[in-house]
Design a binder for these strands. Structure first.
Lengths: 253, 253
DNA sequence: CTTGTCGGATTGTTCAACAACTGTCTAGGT
DNA sequence: ACCTAGACAGTTGTTGAACAATCCGACAAG
C-alpha cells in the first residue's frame, strides 16, 4: 500500500520502466503546498539561517509565503515531526536549542541504528557501495576546495546512504530525522573545518572495511567514530554555553 | 527544552511529589482538541475496532466527534506520522493493511533497537527492573484468566519498559511508534491466544537474564524471540491472504 | 473489451472570525 | 524596594463555510 513498489502484477521485463515512471509521478504530484513550504523552511533551518531558539511567527510567515495559516501549520507539523522545530502549546513553534542532554540522547539512538546496520551487513555486492564511494569522493573534493559546508553535506549523505544499505524504509526515515537534527547541532557551532575535516578520512577508512566485508570491525570503528564526533560536538556546545554566561556579568556580584 | 523532565532544580526529597504533580498537570493540559481526537482514534485503531483497509470519512467523523474538519485533519496528521493511518492524496485516510514486506521492515527496526538496548545494558539497579516485573506478573495473571487481549497489552508494555531502560527519549518514542504498528498487525490476525501465550514465559526468562546482568545473552535470546514472533505473524498474515484469494475463484480457469 | 465522457461525492486549500491562552505591564498593598 | 493581582495586547487554537481539484462508478461509443 504505502510501499511504492510496482510489484502488484507481472514481474516481467517492464518492471523497471513502470516502477521508475511511477516513482517520478509520485515525486511530482507530492501533495505540494504544505510540503513545499516545509522544504523551504527545512533548508533555512538546516542551513542555520534561523538561529536556535528563534520563534517562527505564523502571521509573519503567512504574509511572506502567501499561503494560508492552515497550510503553514501543516508544514510546521511536518517539520516538528522531523525534530527540526518544536511546538509549544499556545506559544508557537521554535527552532530547537539542543542542550547537552539532548545531544547525548540523539547520538545514543544514532549509534544504535548505524552500528547495528553495519554489523548486520556482512559481505555485499560492490555495486551497492557505489553511492558511498561517490559521497566520500565528493567530500574529499570539497575539502580540497576548502568548502566545509559542502564537506558536511557530503558526510551526512554518506551516513544516509550507509543506513540505506539495510534496505528498510523505517530505518531510512528514522536516520533522516536524526541526521537533520545533527546538522542542527552543527549549525549552532562555529569552526566547520575542525568539525568535518577529520571524518572525511574516517569515512573512507570505514568504506574500505565494508568493501572487504569486515562488517564486524567496521561496526566497531563506527562506534568509536560516533563517540568522537559526539564528544567534539559536546565540547563545542559547552564552550558556547560558557561564552554566553561569561560575557554577561552577574546580576549580584 | 522539549524534555518533560522536572529535574530542573534541586533533587531534594520533594522530587517525587513535584514530578508526579507536574506529570499530572501536563497530562491534563495537553488538551489541544486535535490531540484528544488523535488519542481517541489511536485507541480505536490499536484496539482493532477499525479493520485494516477501512477508510475514515471526514464528514462522518466531524458529525460524530463534534470537531471542525480542520481539527480532525490535524488529528489525522498526527496519527499518520505515527504510522497508524495512511494518507492517500485526494482519497482520504485509511487504516493501513500491513503486507508481508512492511511487517519485515517493521521487525527489522524493532530488532535493531530492542536488541541493542539490551546488549548495552550491563548490570543495573534491580529497582529499575520493577516495571518489568509488574508487566510480566500482569501478563501471567491475565493468561490465567484467559484474557488474551490483556496479555497482549501487558506484553507490549513489557517491551516499552524494556527499551525505557536505555533512558533515551528518542528511543522511547520510536519504540512506541513501532509497538503501536505491531499491535496493528496483531489486530489483523485471529487467535490471540496462540499469538501471545508463548511470550509470557519468554518475557519472564528474558527478565531473569536481566536480573542476573547477563545482558549479552539476553540480547541473543531477544533476537530469537523477535525472530519467532515475526515468523508467526508472517505465517498468520500469509494464511489470511491465502483465504482471501482462495474463496474468490479465478477469472480465467 | 477497451476508450471517452459525465456527474456525484470526497478531499485540498483558503479565508475570516472568534475563543483561549501567554507574557508583560501597571497599580496597589506590605 | 519588593511582591501580588489584575488588566492588556499579541499570538495561537478552533470553527464553519466556501470554492477548486480530484477520484470513482456508471454509461455510452468505438
Amino acid at each position: 500500500m504505502a510501499a511504492p513498489s510496482g510489484a502488484d502484477g507481472v514481474p516481467g521485463p517492464d518492471a523497471g520502466w513502470l516502477r521508475a515512471m511511477a516513482d517520478e509521478v509520485r515525486a511530482f504530484d507530492r501533495s505540494s503546498t504544505a510540503e513545499r513550504v516545509a522544504d523551504l523552511l527545512r533548508r533555512r533551518v538546516i542551513e542555520g539561517d534561523l538561529p536556535p531558539g528563534r520563534r517562527l511567527s505564523e502571521e509573519q510567515l503567512v504574509d511572506v509565503l502567501h499561503v494560508s495559516r492552515n497550510t503553514l501549520r501543516e508544514a510546521f507539523r511536518l517539520l516538528t515531526h522531523e525534530g527540526l522545530l518544536v511546538h509549544r502549546l499556545h506559544r508557537g513553534v521554535f527552532v530547537p536549542e539542543l542542550d547537552e542532554e539532548e545531544l547525548v540522547d540523539l547520538y545514543r539512538l544514532r549509534r544504535t541504528i548505524e552500528c547495528d546496520v553495519v554489523r548486520r551487513l556482512g559481505r555485499l555486492d560492490p555495486v551497492r557501495l557505489r553511492p558511498l564511494h561517490d559521497d566520500v569522493a565528493a567530500a574529499e573534493d570539497a575539502a580540497r576546495r576548502g568548502d566545509w559546508g559542502a564537506v558536511g553535506t557530503a558526510n551526512m549523505r554518506f551516513h544516509q546512504h550507509l543506513v540505506a544499505l539495510a534496505g528498510s524504509r523505517r530505518i531510512d526515515e528514522t536516520a533522516a530525522r536524526l541526521l537533520a537534527e545533527v546538522r542542527l547541532a552543527f549549525s549552532a557551532v562555529g569552526s566547520p573545518q575542525r568539525l568535518h575535516e577529520p571524518y572525511v578520512r574516517r569515512n573512507r577508512a570505514l568504506l574500505e572495511l565494508l568493501v572487504d566485508g569486515e562488517s564486524e570491525r567496521a561496526a566497531k570503528e563506527l562506534e568509536d567514530y560516533l563517540q568522537d564526533s559526539e564528544a567534539e560536538l559536546l565540547a563545542a556546545l559547552r564552550d558556547r554555553a560558557g561564552e554566553r554566561s561569561g560575557d554577561r556579568p552577574r546580576r549580584t556580584p
